[in-house]
Write a protein that binds this DNA or RNA. Structure first.
Lengths: 212, 212
DNA sequence: GTCTATACACTGATAGAC
DNA sequence: GTCTATCAGTGTATAGAC
C-alpha cells in the first residue's frame, strides 16, 4: 500500500508539472513563435528550472507537438457541436457559439494553431489530411443535402466552413488588434455577446437562415 | 556626366538588390517566423552572400520592419477601394474583391502581418493606433449612416470590418490548410472566382444587401 | 560594392551532484 | 525528482581583403 501511495503521488506530481509546463509553453509559443520561444523563457513562465522542462519533455519539439495536439483535440471535440441532426440553423448556431467561446477561453492555443498552419503545418499535417479532412467532408455532405432540400441557400460548403473558422478564430488570433481598436481595452462580457451575435447573424442570414 | 551615369547605375543596382532582398525576406519571414528566419536563409533565397543582406539593411529587425511596413501600405492603399460615396453594396463589394485579390497576390505579406499581430504587434503598433484606427473609425461612421438611412441591416460596423478582414485574409494565411482540403492542390482561377463570389454573397446578403 | 573569415552571444540539451 | 554547471552548435553582425 505504501508503494502504491508513493507511486500515486509521483504520478500526480508528474501530471501536475506537465500541465504547468504545457500551459506556459502554449503562452510562450503563441507570443514568440516556435523559434522565438526559448526553453529558458518557458521555464521562467512555468517557474521551474530549465532542466526540468527537458526532464518532462525530451525536446522542445516534443513539447510544441503536445501543445498543438491539445488545441486540435479541443477543436475537434467542439466540432461535434456541429450536430447535423439538429438541422442547419441550430447546428451552425451552436457550432459558431462554441467556436467563439473557444476563441475567448483558448486564445493562446488558437494563436499557436494559426502560426503552425501559416508555416505549412510541419507538425500537424497528418491530422489535417486525416481527421480534419474527414470531418470537413462529412459536414459538407450534410450541408449539400440541406441545400438540395431547400433548407438554405446554395453555397459551396467549404467556403461556409472557412468563413466560420476564420471569423471566429480572428477574435483570438487578432485579439491584440481588436483590443487596440477598442480603445486599448479587452472585450467585456457584453462586448463578447455582441460579437457572437453579430457573427451568427451575418453568417446565418447570409446563407438564407435566421439565427436562433 | 560620367559621374551622373555611375551614380545612376549605383542607385539602380542598390534599389534592385533591395527589392530582391525584401522579396526573399517576406517569403522567409512568412514561412519561418521572425526568430526562425535566419539571415543566411534569406541570403540563400535572394541568392546573395549573407554579408550583403547586412550591407543593405543594417539589422535583421530593420529588414523585418520594412517588410511589415510594405504590406501595411499595400493594404491601406487597397482600403481606399472602400469608397463610401459608392454606397454600401458597391463599396463593400469592391473592398472585398480587392482584399481577395491581395490574398492571392500577396500571401507572404499577409502571413507576415498575421504573425506580427499574433505576437502583439511589436513593430506595427504605432500604425494600428494611428492610420488603421483612423480609417476604421471613418468607415464605421459611414456604415452607421447607411444603417440609419435604412440602406443595410443594423450591425456593429467593427464586426462587419473584422468579418471582411478575417475571411479574406484566411485565404492567404490558411492557404496551406485550404490546399490540403482541396486534394493538396492550389486553387485554380475558377476556384478563386467561386471563393470571391461565395464570400461576397454571404457577407452582403448577411447584412441585407445583394452582391453586385 | 562584394564577399570571406571570424568574433561574440545565445540556445537546446545533458551530465552529474544532491 | 530537482537543479547547477557546462558543452556543442548556431545565429547576428562586422572587420577587412578585394
Amino acid at each position: 500500500m505504501v508503494s502504491n501511495t508513493v507511486s500515486f503521488h509521483k504520478f500526480a506530481k508528474r501530471s501536475q508539472n506537465q500541465k504547468i509546463i504545457l500551459a506556459a509553453a502554449e503562452k510562450v509559443f503563441a507570443e514568440a513563435g516556435y523559434a522565438g520561444a526559448t526553453t529558458q523563457l518557458i521555464a521562467d513562465v512555468a517557474n521551474l528550472p530549465k532542466a526540468n522542462i527537458h526532464y518532462y519533455f525530451k525536446t522542445k519539439e516534443d513539447l510544441y507537438r503536445q501543445v498543438v495536439y491539445n488545441i486540435f483535440d479541443i477543436w475537434m471535440e467542439a466540432a461535434s457541436a456541429f450536430d447535423t441532426e439538429l438541422g442547419p440553423r441550430e447546428a451552425l448556431s451552436r457550432y459558431i457559439d462554441k467556436k467563439m467561446d473557444l476563441a475567448r477561453t483558448h486564445p493562446y492555443g488558437s494563436k499557436v494553431w494559426a502560426t503552425e498552419i501559416i508555416h505549412g503545418a510541419p507538425i500537424i499535417q497528418d491530422y489535417l489530411e486525416g481527421q480534419l479532412l474527414e470531418w470537413s467532408q462529412d459536414r459538407s455532405k450534410h450541408i449539400q443535402r440541406w441545400i438540395e432540400n431547400g433548407e438554405m441557400d446554395s453555397i459551396d460548403p467549404a467556403h461556409l466552413l472557412y468563413m466560420i473558422w476564420s471569423t471566429t478564430q480572428h477574435y483570438a488570433d487578432f485579439g491584440h488588434q481588436i483590443e487596440t481598436l477598442n480603445a486599448g481595452k479587452p472585450y467585456s462580457d457584453a462586448q463578447w455577446q455582441i460579437a457572437k451575435l453579430s457573427v451568427k447573424t451575418i453568417i446565418l442570414k447570409g446563407i438564407g437562415l435566421t439565427p436562433s
